[in-house]
Design a binder for these strands. Structure first.
Lengths: 161, 161
DNA sequence: ATATTAAGGATATACATTATCCTTAATTGT
DNA sequence: ACAATTAAGGATAATGTATATCCTTAATAT
């Protein structure tokens, strides 16, 4: 499973869920409405976050999702990998094996040099995402969003049944 | 244009072209045969490398491709971006604007915090690819490929008309 | 009981990647 | 001049993946 748009949604949803009052859950319907995104498809992303123990759920009326951990225990990488999977951007198809000069019985000697470099780059990408916490995002949002919008949004969420 | 498999081919092709004798070109047909990949599609990748001034070409018999620069002047990023384009892996759809509490007339205040973090990760990815030169790859290949295979491959290429 | 909700399977739609084909113009060697 | 060879690039087909919707099931609060 390899999702693209849903990663953006998941990050924003986790940010919203961070502001939830103790003991409350927020339903997929509300998260979808708040972000203006398709509810059914968003649901798949949230299910992945739940499977990864980033969110926890409750069924029935007043059910929905909430964070399963504190925001300073959740990294961007946790969220991204939960939704996108752990595929690296580079896939090595071992074309070196097609070299017509090559003996067919050469034992495999680890990944080829090209793949190594590409995977190191992937690793650098992951390392950065691992270094940023959900709590860091909240801090940044606080600085770039007006106090008014912040309060209004919180109220909007509180008023959900 | 956004290619995936072709990036791998392009990197391997550049490595092969590095070993080419002075003044010679190698045709798409030969590069495709050596790597066991589709000639017509590989051609698209090579055209991109040519447009990016990484390769230079000659038409007619004994024509084909050769490097346009020395291997220590070509980075992995040069090759990857020439073939894949410069799209970042993360695309921000600005879902913050769908927030029902938001005034429609709020002036745009740069990229949102989520996008910034994701793009920083992309930047780390690019930075690594920029730090590795084609000449570094050649060095690594020399260490992991048997002397015999190296000579045989060079001979195979030399014998192309 | 009833309404509400997440989980998840099945399936349709849209889009991007991969691959092939064919024409054109340039170049080389005869 | 001529024939063979080659990159460039447009058009299009085939495939695969991402996106989106629908529907059923089981759990839960009131």
């Amino acid at each position: 499973m390899m999702l693209k748009g849903p990663v953006e949604w998941a990050l924003h949803c986790c940010a919203i869920l961070s502001g939830l009052q103790q003991g409350r859950y927020l339903a997929t319907k509300d998260l979808a409405e708040f972000h203006g995104i398709p509810k059914e498809y968003l649901s798949k992303a949230l299910q992945n976050l739940s499977k990864a123990s980033i969110l926890e759920t409750s069924l029935g009326p007043r059910g929905g999702y909430r964070l399963a951990k504190l925001p300073d225990k959740i990294t961007f990488l946790d969220i991204v990998e939960a939704v996108e999977g752990r595929h690296s951007t580079f896939v090595c198809t071992e074309i070196r094996k097609n070299n017509p000069c090559r003996e067919t019985n050469i034992p495999d000697t680890g990944p080829c040099a090209v793949a190594r470099v590409m995977w190191e780059a992937d690793e650098a990408w992951r390392a950065h995402l691992k270094s940023v916490l959900l709590s860091d995002l909240l801090e940044a949002v606080k600085n770039e969003v007006s106090e008014e919008l912040l309060l209004k949004s919180r109220a909007w969420i509180s008023e959900r049944p």
